[in-house]
């Protein structure tokens, strides 16, 4: 907190608001992970953190460092783009794996129950 003295008040308030908003959205998403009952419902809430959560915090960082260094600092855009592009890949693979495992489990269950009979 040693370099914050030479930064205008509006930038600090915008940064503070964006950081708090992003963190709250991410927490709601993670809380949904605890609260949802089934796997397919659990996959949805964390995308709050990967879209608006990441977006807000990256925006806060862009505003803060741009004002601090008096030139646009945009490399946080890379974080947002990277997360936006990679989330669909991981979630699609995971859901496909879950479907595959559900099918395998129900088949195995039928096989074992018929073996008992």
């Amino acid at each position: 907190m040693n370099r914050t003295a030479d930064i205008p008040a509006w930038a600090e308030i915008v940064t503070a608001a964006l950081v708090l908003l992003g963190a709250t959205i991410t927490l709601i998403g993670a809380f949904g992970l605890v609260r949802m009952k089934t796997f397919y419902a659990r996959v949805h809430p964390p995308t709050l953190g990967t879209t608006l959560g990441t977006g807000c915090i990256a925006m806060a960082s862009i505003v803060y460092f741009s004002v601090l260094q008096t030139r646009p600092v945009l490399h946080e855009v890379l974080l947002v783009l990277f997360v936006l592009v990679t989330t669909p890949v991981t979630l699609m693979l995971l859901v496909r794996a879950a479907l595959f495992r559900d099918e395998a489990k129900s088949e195995a269950g039928e096989a074992s129950s018929s073996a008992i009979e």
């Binding site: 995308t47 879209t51 496909r96």
Partner: peptide
């Protein structure tokens, strides 16, 4: 990307 990035919908 659009469907999965939008919370609440998921490409299967």
């Amino acid at each position: 990307c659009i469907i999965t990035s939008t919370p609440g919908t998921l490409w299967v």
